[in-house]
Nucleic acid binder design. Structure first.
Lengths: 323, 323
DNA sequence: TTCTTTATACTCAAATTGAGCATAACTGGT
DNA sequence: ACCAGTTATGCTCAATTTGAGTATAAAGAA
């Protein structure tokens, strides 16, 4: 059995997320110079130096970013032709990872300004504005996305059902986990900038782009990351890997809402969390504007491995914060 | 940024599952000759010839196995050193896939003998006897696995909590999704044959092995596949990709039980499925020993993409079939 | 006919979920 | 000190879902 003709190069790319500045943020590297935008932290997998890919990944993250990773999870391996600049000597296979990092410590209201070392953390929803339903249904959906998809569907009617399910039309429910499916459809319909670039077309901005673009397929990896995280929240306690050691229930809820992109019923969220038994009260209390809140911490925080059951949050019919 | 020193070779390996002969079966290839046992269907990824890895995978499956794949899903990419025979020129990275294939058609009770072309399909639980709880708690657990793990834990006490959670001891629930976690623990404790081989130790059968071994890390891929399938059943309707076009509710339940490794409450299963709205009755009926059963088929079977909601089966407290 | 077997139909209580209302404990302004 | 605004926490209640049975229907076998 003969061997590959083109040399294969494995690129490890990581979506590193954190909750900071009251946003869900993603770490980016690279100067926003010439050609295209930023990229995820990444580096080649070098089997001679790294026993496993995760070790390699932690190496690159340590080198490019100065953060401790709380949770690391392999997402998907992409090897599509055409997603990477062709004409290169090697064929690039890209292995995407999701990593979560804990908020340093109690971000007090007073010191919200970003410290200098913070480098390049971008609001995750800047890449996917249609995924954030916390203020209600995003206008961009009805104003631009669905009309554009409808126009595309005239040429590609076979995709009608996929659009219907991914974007929750005609009775189908909006499923917040289908982040990747939605992004892929927008890519296929050439509504995101990366699609135009991959097709070699000029960037003739007929309309402003849908969300910020990223290098190569990095936004696809990011979409996979968000979808996976949203899904995983429901059955594994990964949300705590975004929290500092002590936190209020309100902070936990905000983080959850940020990830899920929807608002939750506060009292029911409290009931859910208390019943789950994950948390234990530190005697402390934290004060802000209203009544001071009890500060909790994770029970089993000695163990890094905690394959427990997750939070089972559901979007429910909670009203958006504002009109 | 320089390039890898060792050449990288990507191997695509697929766990192909089907429900046949009243078993959940996995397709194997390769003569059970010299060194080690069978392997999963596999082949190298050749970027010059296959635009995506999935296309490459379908190519190898078509070449080695003569089945139509209903569902194909990428599982995980393994690149651990030491899991593959070292000393080779290239470093092998192994991308594991799960594929489901539909039972050809109504397997009548009368023709249960395996046709000749059936080649090499092995009972999945031959590899993981501790995962099948349909006849009640497998004896192998208390008879051999847990005692051996306890002995191992004396040397590696740090793994105590992982064992507790994976194998459901001291109040922890047995979670049928933790197939991979359990297999990895058995590997680390050197209780499966692959571990001995990877350590270069002689095969000095002190005790019979735990389950059938496979080539390289193929059993790990298979464990990943079973765990993923068990998990996915609960939120996506993948079970139907193991069914023929028409089937009775009892057949659907049996397949589900086979995958989950537990028995379900028949009346509640029926209620669940009916409420889900996936099925539609063909007027037909199928008879066997008792009252004839209605034959159903999937509603949307025109579409291959059906990101709908899944079955949410729970193990409940159903009693095992027999003592 | 009378068993035996399997399918299907209902019932019922316990648990969970979705939504509110009510109260407590602060801050800030007057 | 008092009041308005804000956030946390406690509790209730009805609708739904779940777990587990009991009852009945429709075959084949004895």
């Amino acid at each position: 059995m003969s061997v590959t003709q083109t040399e294969i190069l494995i690129e490890l790319s990581t979506a590193i997320l954190r909750h900071h500045n009251d946003r869900l943020e993603c770490r980016l590297v690279g100067e926003a110079e010439a050609s295209l935008s930023k990229r995820l932290p990444f580096g080649p997998f070098m089997p001679d130096q790294h026993r496993t890919m995760e070790i390699g990944l932690r190496h690159w993250v340590r080198e490019q970013v100065g953060v401790d990773l709380a949770h690391v999870e392999q997402l998907y391996t992409f090897a599509d032709q055409g997603r990477h600049a062709s004409g290169e000597a090697a064929h690039i296979v890209s292995v995407g990872y999701l990593a979560l990092t804990r908020t340093p410590e109690q971000t007090l209201e007073s010191e919200k300004q970003t410290p200098a070392e913070d480098g390049d953390w971008e609001d995750l929803y800047a890449f996917f504005p249609w995924e954030d339903w916390r203020q209600g249904r995003p206008e961009i959906l009805d104003a631009r996305i669905l009309p554009a998809l409808d126009k595309w569907l005239e040429k590609e009617p076979h995709a009608g059902d996929r659009v219907r399910l991914a974007f929750g039309r005609d009775g189908a429910q909006w499923d917040e986990e289908f982040v990747l499916e939605r992004y892929e459809l927008l890519y296929e319909a050439a509504l995101v900038e990366e699609a135009l670039i991959d097709q070699g077309k000029q960037r003739k901005h007929p309309k402003p782009a849908l969300g910020l673009a990223l290098h190569l397929d990095h936004r696809r990896i990011l979409a996979t990351a968000l979808g996976r995280l949203r899904s995983k929240l429901k059955y594994r306690p990964v949300i705590f890997d975004l929290m500092p050691s002590g936190f209020t229930l309100r902070a936990l809820q905000s983080t959850t809402e940020m990830v899920m992109g929807v608002n939750l019923h506060q009292q029911n969220f409290r009931r859910l969390v208390e019943k789950s038994g994950f948390l234990i009260s530190t005697g402390r209390t934290q004060r802000a504007r209203g009544r001071p809140a009890e500060v909790f911490r994770l029970r089993h925080n000695e163990r890094t491995e905690r394959p427990l059951s997750g939070l089972r949050v559901t979007a429910g019919r909670a009203k958006p914060n504002s009109p």
